[in-house]
Computed example of a mutant assay.
Amino acid sequence: MNVKALIRTVNHTLKLHNLFPENSRILVACSGGPDSMALLHLLQDIATHRHTEYELGVAIVDHCIRPESKDEVLWLRNQVEILGLPFYTAIFDVPKLSKEQKLSEETIGRHVRYQWLTGIAQSEGYDYIAVAHHKDDQAESILAHLIRGTGLNGLTGMAVVSNDYTVPVVRPLLDVTKEELLLYLKEKDISYCIDSTNEDVRYQRNRIRHCIIPELKAINPIVIDAIVRLGASVREDISLISNLTDMAFDELVTISDEGAFISRRGLRKKPLSIQRRLWQRLVSIFDPEIKLTTAHQEQLLDIVNTGEGKTFNIKSIKVSAQCDTIKVYCKH
């Protein structure tokens, strides 16, 4: 894919989702690495392609994981000054936070990064946050979820637009590969930094990238495309199942001040996939933080399929079944 074709592909992705209209203010999350440097320059190319202007800002977080990260921030600051763009930076001691909170550096890093990016975007009036995940990242993400056993939802991968934060997070590069981005950088003579931790296979994502994907490519050279197609297909199926779950919810669930009520007999008639999603939705009404495990779902299935009186507790939620009625409510 040449430069023009790459610009057209990214532009097509953005158009499909009605993203980045004229004069959009976009905060680009940039590490100085090849992916994010390609994103930064591609957004400028797309503005030219569309005969419009964007107000771009560049934001980088120093996670304090590598000694060279300070120099990379300074290098990126210089690059951004040459482009004449606003520059934002923050320092978080991720290894320290990781030990204190007993979470992985990847998890802590992602949390503090997005929290800070959202804060900057809000305070500085940006409409979008742009991040540089590409097609290879998408395939790796789907494989990571598959390995963890997250069910269908995990197989959908990353969305082009995520509204999980107060400012939309956009992934314009999900339809292009890492190889295409590297060719773009070479063609346009754009420099970038190399993050040495990307080679460290102690990190799960790197192990998938450097060990598992090459093995899969030996079996199927276009495995990246195959995995990404799977994600898109699952996303379509989940959309249908979600609509059917909405209909079942409206049909079977009654909500009052005392809690939510549902018929055992009515629930038994629904497919298992709908039952599982109904239970998650019911529980989320009272505590959005609760994610039902497979063990929870099996116990709930047992309650539905027996006619006996039963009670079941999930953290702050109580499920009580008497005769045909199951009541779900919050314990006080």
Rank of each mutant, 00 (worst) to 15 (best):
T52M: 14
E53M: 13
L27R: 00
I46G: 09
L14R: 13
P21E: 13
E55L: 03
S24A: 15
H49A: 07
F20D: 11
A38E: 07
L43T: 10
H51P: 04
D45H: 14
N23V: 14
S24V: 15
Y54R: 07
Q44I: 01
D35I: 05
A38T: 06
G32I: 12
R50I: 04
L40N: 01
Y54H: 07
A29Q: 05
L19K: 07
L56Q: 08
L56D: 09
Y54T: 06
L27I: 03
A47D: 12
E53V: 15
A38L: 04
E55I: 01
H17S: 04
H51C: 04
F20S: 12
P21T: 12
L16H: 09
L43Y: 05
L39G: 04
E22R: 11
F20G: 12
L27A: 02
G57R: 01
G57T: 02
A38Q: 03
S36H: 08
Y54M: 02
L14I: 15
H41P: 09
L19Q: 10
G57M: 01
I26L: 11
C30F: 02
S36Y: 03
D35Q: 04
D45A: 15
A47V: 10
L56Y: 04
S24H: 13
I46L: 13
A38C: 05
M37E: 14
P21L: 12
F20T: 05
A29L: 08
G33L: 11
V28T: 00
F20K: 08
L19D: 11
A47R: 11
D35Y: 04
E55P: 00
L14A: 15
L40Y: 01
L56V: 09
N18C: 11
M37H: 11
Y54W: 05
E55M: 01
H49C: 03
H51F: 03
S36P: 04
T52V: 12
E53R: 14
Y54A: 02
L27H: 00
A38K: 06
H51G: 05
T52S: 11
M37S: 15
N23Y: 13
T48M: 14
E22G: 08
L14E: 15
L19C: 13
Y54V: 01
Q44R: 07
C30S: 07
P21V: 12
D35H: 03
L27Y: 00
K15E: 12
L40T: 02
L43M: 09
I26T: 10
R25T: 01
E53L: 14
N18Y: 07
G33K: 14
H51T: 08
K15T: 09
N18K: 09
T52I: 12
Q44D: 07
H41C: 13
T48E: 14
G32E: 15
R50S: 04
Y54N: 05
G32Y: 13
M37I: 12
I46P: 09
H51E: 07
D35T: 04
Q44H: 05
E22F: 03
E22P: 06
L19Y: 08
S31V: 13
L56C: 06
L14C: 13
I26D: 11
E22Q: 08
G57V: 02
L43C: 13
G32F: 11
C30N: 07
F20H: 08
C30D: 05
L40V: 04
N23L: 14
R25K: 03
H41I: 09
A47G: 15
V28S: 00
S31D: 11
H51S: 08
M37N: 14
